[in-house]
Design a protein around this nucleic acid. Structure first.
Lengths: 100, 100
DNA sequence: TGTGTTTTGACATTTTTTGTCAAATTTAGT
DNA sequence: ACTAAATTTGACAAAAAATGTCAAAACACA
């Protein structure tokens, strides 16, 4: 189960590209991309979309990785983390069912 | 599956207390509590702890409700909401296992 | 050592969050 | 309908967090 950062670092290194190149495509400083890859900063949704485009991977795969990382961050350090995730799942199912 | 807001509103109305009273205990304006109860504002963790204390309910129950609401909010509008929740669960399990 | 890459941290700017306050609206009782 | 209490709303201010830039430090390695 790779984090988003690990995933995009792998993608980048696989193509032997410097941070600079990818960061330029995202239109941010390479420092930020470095931090994103190491999980020290959160990427924005738009950045994820661009990254999927850049690396030609499924946008949804990256979005899942990104979103789940954020969820993990949100529940980190809480004893009730798993219970909360589970209850959130039920709530989402309920909401989705309600919205036809 | 009640939201946190619904839950604490029920608790409060069950005791026939005005927002004022509970808000005073939390040391916030009643306007905020009103918004929290209707899901327009997020409560802080400390406020949840105080609410559990005030209403004499299990702190963890309220924390789960509060956290799961936040998670739902975080994934709302995302097609991949359920997948992300699921992946987050796996990541948390992994992390917890690693931390002995 | 010299060159390119990555990491770090100080800093500035922008956005989000958190709260207060007062006015408007709603609710209930008489 | 009138009043009084409770609730909701929205404008606003202050505090906190996120987002980015930049330059210097650290790293990799020929």
């Amino acid at each position: 189960m790779k984090s988003l950062g690990e995933t995009i670092r792998e993608l980048r290194e696989h193509q032997e590209l410097p941070l600079r190149t990818v960061a330029a495509f995202l239109d941010i400083d390479q420092a930020i991309l470095s931090k994103i890859e190491r999980g020290q900063r959160n990427a924005s949704r738009e950045q994820i979309v661009k990254l999927a485009q850049f690396f030609k991977v499924k946008e949804n795969d990256l979005l899942v990785s990104w979103l789940s990382d954020k969820l993990v961050y949100e529940v980190a350090d809480e004893d009730v983390a798993l219970k909360a995730l589970h209850e959130a799942e039920e709530k989402v199912k309920y909401i989705m069912a309600k919205r036809k």
